[in-house]
């Protein structure tokens, strides 16, 4: 058990033409205080929906959590009333998105957007809130903090906007920051700045960060622990060193192998054949079986569980676990 957040057997379904399609089915992970945990996976693996469900933010009303628990400290977030949830959102858990422009109000000055949240959650008066806001902007490395307060989001560059988003998110000193692809829309040199900033925040303020990304490089550079998702499931979890040193799940291995690495050029890149199964027509058994180089008969018949090894590593792969004898008989 982790002492900040524990997600257990999360299941999320989307409704489409009266059919319910499970896009997340069996996600377990946890975050301890002050830790940076990464969730990696390719598009459609369910990582973003998972992060939204922690905040209970479904912009698309056709999606809903249909099973599992999200334990944040003592409370199950899924059991809370909307009112109680509002008190947690922004104050205890904050979130930043890939495209900051969509989550900033375009017709409100930056200062006002910052001050609003601070007054609401910390109960400060306007003057104190303003001071706190300027301080936050300085913390995130915005050079002319006072003058930025009077500017509108469109006057800033992408990197600056993301800094402002981080300032807003951090202004109430949340214990958990969820960052959903925070650097994907940014240039590499700016990405490096933002990643550095996030690590600084975690170090200095002890904020736990859940970093959702598709970029293994970003994970390797910033995370302590990594959760790998595939087709709506967690397939592997390990510390960042272990994961890159000895990935257990064939999907993780393939993913790491297919990234071109600077200074390690090969004539041909390894590539995972095929593509991610359609959530409307999920195969039985392991969801990766059709692309897996080590596929066995059992993989196509039964889906493995997410199993914890002695050293705390978790994997969902038949190569690293065995079914009990009696079960084997019933399957034949």
């Amino acid at each position: 058990m982790h002492n900040l957040l524990n997600v257990n057997n999360l299941q999320i379904a989307f409704r489409k033409r009266k059919k319910s399609i499970k896009v997340v089915n069996g996600v377990d992970f946890g975050i301890s205080k002050g830790e940076i945990v990464g969730i990696v996976g390719e598009s459609g693996c369910g990582k973003s929906v998972t992060s939204l469900s922690i905040m209970r933010l479904f912009h698309d009303t056709s999606g809903e959590v249909v099973g599992g628990t999200i334990q944040f400290k003592e409370k199950d977030l899924l059991e809370l009333s909307e009112r109680e949830m509002r008190r947690i959102r922004g104050k205890e858990i904050a979130m930043i998105f890939q495209e900051p422009m969509t989550s900033l109000n375009p017709v409100m000055k930056i200062g006002k957007q910052l001050i609003q949240g601070i007054m609401l959650h910390l109960g400060l008066n306007r003057e104190e809130a303003k001071q706190q806001a300027v301080e936050m902007l300085k913390l995130v490395g915005i050079p002319r903090a006072e003058s930025i307060m009077n500017e509108y989001p469109h006057q800033l560059s992408g990197g600056m906007r993301q800094r402002v988003m981080i300032a807003i998110a951090m202004s109430c000193e949340p214990e958990l920051l969820i960052a959903d692809e925070p650097t994907t829309a940014l240039d590499v040199t700016i990405q490096a700045q933002i990643l550095q900033l996030m690590k600084k925040i975690q170090r200095e303020r002890g904020t736990a960060i859940l970093l959702i990304t598709h970029d293994l490089g970003v994970v390797a550079e910033s995370c302590d622990r990594v959760v790998v998702m595939y087709a709506g499931r967690v397939v592997e979890e390990a510390t960042v060193e272990e994961l890159f040193e000895s990935p257990l799940h064939p999907y993780t291995q393939g993913l790491i192998e297919s990234v071109p690495k600077i200074g390690n050029r090969k004539e041909e890149l390894y590539s995972i054949p095929g593509h991610v199964p359609n959530p409307e027509a999920m195969p039985n058994g392991c969801k990766f079986a059709s692309r897996c180089p080590y596929v066995m008969d059992i993989c196509r018949e039964r889906e493995p569980q997410l199993v914890s090894n002695n050293n705390g590593r978790k994997q969902r792969c038949w190569l690293h676990q065995s079914i009990k004898e009696e079960e084997r008989k019933t399957i034949g």
């Binding site: 896009v23 598009s43 459609g44 939204l52 912009h59 698309d60 959903d180």
Partner: peptide
């Protein structure tokens, strides 16, 4: 933002 959602919307559209 959320990839799954945009993808599913796109498919519907």
């Amino acid at each position: 933002m959320s990839e799954t959602m945009t993808v599913s919307k796109q498919q519907i559209a």
